[in-house]
Amino acid sequence: IEYVEEAVEAVDKDKWKGIAVYVDHIDGVIHPVTYELIGKARELAKKINHPVYAIMMGHHIGSQCEELLHYEVDKVFVYDKEELDRFKMEPYTKAFEDFVENIKPTAILMGATPVGRQLAPRLAARLKTGLTADCTILDINENTDLVQIRPAFGGNIMAQILTPNHRPQMATVRYKVMDAPERKDAAQGEIIRCNIDSKELASKVSVLDIIAKEKEQFIEASEVLVVAGRGIKKEEDLAMLKELAELLGGQIACTRPVMEAGWLEAKRQVGLSGRTVRPKLIITCGVSGSVQFTAGMNNSEQIIAINKDENAPIFKAAHYCLVGDLYDIIPNLISQIKAGKTVSA
């Protein structure tokens, strides 16, 4: 079937100016994806000579919104109202709509967080505009059309998408896809306090409680895995691999012999007779790389292998092959990561 598109009324693109970033936060703690999007927005805005905006909604967020001025945002629009205390779909959509009507940004970028993933579509439908989900690459044409590239079909296909006849153009982006800019010591740009009538902010949803979640214990759910193989000499040495895993925001996993030794639980074993994992990053330490092991992890996005035997089969599966003794690498790496964390904190 051929779908024929009729001529569409052209939108006046010159009336829409600026790249806006939604400031994703919980109780004033800004989600780092926000800074990554500001970095991307600046790069895009520069190409078309537009300003960069941030929009933040919440309650008692005075000092937090000032932090944004250290990231070269031209204007931060702030809706500070009791009704906007926690994310609630209807009032947040209303305030956002108010911002779009008044400021008319050409594009809006939002983090693909649990909040962004529901607020963005609600707003897009309200504005009757397009929304591209989970973009991994964003670029902009001279005529201000946003070039949006995203995976679909579970990552088996990439699609390049344009929103040529509608403004604003909307896109969500996952955390850790774009690069965060450096924080500048000097603050620049201005904060604009926006008001909206409380009557407009009614909600048919009330948040009753918020409970911190226990850390996910399944290795399949972890984005980062550090795998212990038989190259680990004694059980106590697992502590350093656990520590490394924690520092990288991940979990420890193992090969079958390590599990059979009773050093780690069966649910942490990767491989044919264990779990199949597909993390963003996997670091194997002292793992030879038998086919039974690699069958459970060879679709991982980034595979880093440490083995002192340069002929170890794991190096055929790995993207980065570190030929060396794990005991010469892991302890130093841990202390350097820790040192780096204290500097930037």
Binding site: I306, A318, C321, V323, G324, D328
Partner: peptide
């Protein structure tokens, strides 16, 4: 695919 050879400290630096 990249193969990294070298001293432990060098490998650690590259890995970091």
């Amino acid at each position: 695919r990249e193969v990294w050879n070298g001293e432990g400290s060098e490998l650690t630096g590259r890995l970091l």
